[in-house]
């Protein structure tokens, strides 16, 4: 539904977005993840024609944004929830949007109810809105025209835990009904729970993309964390089977899969207090892939593997 092809934007020689390509499909939530200044907002602005790309193009539903008839009815956009007139009331902000799209006034009240802004809150001026209220209003604005595609830049920014869960459920439900969602964030755990696919961007380039499972498996090295009852006995047993074990915290880190460690412990009749995968979480992977320091120093084998995988996937 959203098709980004070789999109680039340079500002005086600095590549804010550098040749990114990806697709967002209907029925799925795509997370656009990257640290501050990675180029997420710039990329999203280009998708909706607010910034002219230096190179490349985006089509949404098969059309360039400029060619979409009454775009608010097809694509819901939230780039910056505070980018609204501070002297307008929340309700009036939605009214202006509704009038532009040719929607009835009832739609405004529906949307206000949907994002749980009360009547008295809707009558307040935007300058008196809290961050979370602005964000809710922004979501309401994006959903006004009942669009098939949503493009949201850091929608969870400023929401409390209940708000984040509400947003998550909303977006999941929206995608389940066939909607296409692209949402950005710089917090992995924020998108991890809602996104079906992730696009990791760092310094304007896509460093990895895929669904959560395939991204997690980028860290392919087998590793387990085990807390045995008899530490020395397990170390000896593992060594006997050819596995290295190094002390970590209260237990050991073993360069073998949890299954293999379990097999060894059963075979040698050793009790375990705890056994879990020692694979790096997505969080570590994300930091590693996108951190500028990492890329300036010699790349680790892990990140090299990940980068080549991402190339494979984008081919």
């Amino acid at each position: 539904m959203i098709n980004v092809k070789n999109l680039s934007r340079t500002y005086g020689g600095y590549a804010a977005v550098d040749d990114i390509s990806f697709t967002c499909r209907p029925g799925r939530v795509t997370g656009f993840l990257g640290p501050n200044g990675a180029g997420k907002t710039t990329a999203m602005r280009m998708m909706v024609g607010l910034t002219t790309p230096t190179h490349g193009e985006t089509t949404i539903g098969g059309y360039h944004y400029h060619d979409i008839v009454n775009p608010g009815r097809h694509v819901g956009v939230l780039l910056d929830a505070s980018a609204q007139h501070a002297g307008r009331t929340g309700r009036e902000i939605l009214m202006v949007g509704a009038k532009t799209m040719g929607l009835p006034t009832t739609r405004v009240d529906e949307m206000l109810a949907m994002v749980s802004l009360t009547e008295s809150e809707a009558k307040r001026k935007l300058r008196n809105y809290s961050l979370g209220m602005k964000q809710r209003l922004g979501i309401a604005h994006a959903l006004l025209g009942d669009p098939a595609v949503l493009i949201l830049d850091e929608p969870a920014n400023g929401l409390d835990p209940a708000g984040i869960r509400w947003m998550r459920d909303l977006l999941k439900g929206y995608a389940r009904r066939g909607g296409t969602v692209l949402l950005s964030s710089h917090l992995l755990n924020e998108v991890e729970l809602v996104a079906d696919e992730l696009i990791l961007i760092g310094r304007g380039r896509i460093v990895a993309q895929g669904d959560l499972k395939s991204l997690s498996s980028l860290d392919s090295a087998d590793s387990a964390l085990v807390t045995p009852v008899d530490r020395d006995a397990l170390v000896a047993a593992l060594r006997q089977e050819g596995h290295e074990a190094t002390p970590e915290g209260e237990g050991l880190r073993v360069s073998a899969s949890p299954r293999e460690v379990s097999r060894v412990s059963v075979q040698h009749g050793l009790l375990l207090n705890d056994l879990r995968s020692g694979a790096k979480g997505l969080e570590d992977l994300f930091l590693e892939l996108t951190s500028p320091v990492q890329r300036e120093s010699a790349p680790s084998p892990d990140s090299l593997a990940a980068v080549s995988t991402s190339k494979e996937m984008s081919r």
């Binding site: 098709n3 990806f22 949404i60 539903g61 098969g62 097809h74 532009t100 799209m101 040719g102």
Partner: peptide
Amino acid sequence: MSTTTEQPSPTFDFSETPRVSFSQLVSV
């Protein structure tokens, strides 16, 4: 992603979409 070629993305249908007319923009 490699899925672009496998699954053609659905296209918007504008036949039922009212246009944003100039007079509408003026009144806004």
